[in-house]
Design a protein around this nucleic acid. Sequence first.
DNA 1: GTCTATACCCTGATAGAC
DNA 2: GTCTATCAGGGTATAGAC
Lengths: 189, 189
Amino acid sequence: MTRKQEIIDTAKTLFRQRGYKSVSMRDLAKVIDFKAASLYNHISSKEEILADIVLDVARYFTREMTIIKSLNVDAKTQLEGVINHHVDLTINNPEAIAILNNDWMHLEGKHLEDFKMMRNTYENDLRGIIIQGIEHKEITSQNIDIILFSILSTLRTLHLWYRKRSDLSENTLKKDITEILLKGILAKS
Amino acid sequence: MTRKQEIIDTAKTLFRQRGYKSVSMRDLAKVIDFKAASLYNHISSKEEILADIVLDVARYFTREMTIIKSLNVDAKTQLEGVINHHVDLTINNPEAIAILNNDWMHLEGKHLEDFKMMRNTYENDLRGIIIQGIEHKEITSQNIDIILFSILSTLRTLHLWYRKRSDLSENTLKKDITEILLKGILAKS
DNA sequence: GTCTATACCCTGATAGAC
DNA sequence: GTCTATCAGGGTATAGAC
């Protein structure tokens, strides 16, 4: 592992715990037994660390969505794919997801632009899947944006909850979340 | 409106836009055409402003949950009540909900303790309603914590989405969110 | 590549004149 | 109740010795 990776990994832990703005370069340096000035031999600014963390995840989501769209399967299967890769990432990189959610607005310039563009594209692609599901009568509910929003908010904050329940297996988690997001919870009346 | 209320209302807007840590007392003072020092004639610290905003909302949720529990109605009706008061608050005080979600960890001392206790109590009460629903066969799904988490994450982040869709009426919003959270989205197979 | 020293600015908060 | 002046500390980042 390079020094730069070590810095970024440490930053992931601290940014998640206390938030980007509350972590100083001196805090960060102290954890890896450095002086703050030395960090600048490996990274060019604090914001660059944030961008490395956040844009990496954003690119992962973009890549996975491209794959899902290319599969030519029904909407239900595509939604299952979306849920699965959110769960994967939540398990493998929960800090990065938390930081993306909470601190993306502290990105600057081109980093911020790129992030917003990827996020918009992702939301629009997911909306497209939902619309396809409604057109093909796989989805009964009609309110596209509420469906989109309720699925995304659950998936995006999964990391908050997974910390307390990391005993669950990845497969159980995927199965249960898929069931609740797609089939609902009430008995049929 | 008192001066103190004016300060808190301004803080709500700024804290929501940029995050608690990114807003300085000088920023806050500038908006209401004050010098930063003058703010301290009305409030005792920056953290007190945060606590005023966050604990107010937390107490509102606590109060509403007490009422719902006292009604002695079935689980479905109680869940509808919970959804309704989240929607109410999202419409009437979206800034406070956003700040509660993003910046509660910057509360200090007793404020932080009080907040955590109210939040825990609320989550446990909601879990109790879900358990009751499962026992009475109103709810088919068995995974209590995933149900709890998916409902809460949707309701807690509703404010993010409501900004873009504030054309919807309060009643439509309540109806549609209730339907999706409780009945799911897929056609019966 | 790490250090010390430091530049330069911003932070929350207080003292005391008016 | 608002102001000016200021404190003590902390912020990101750079210069230059080793």
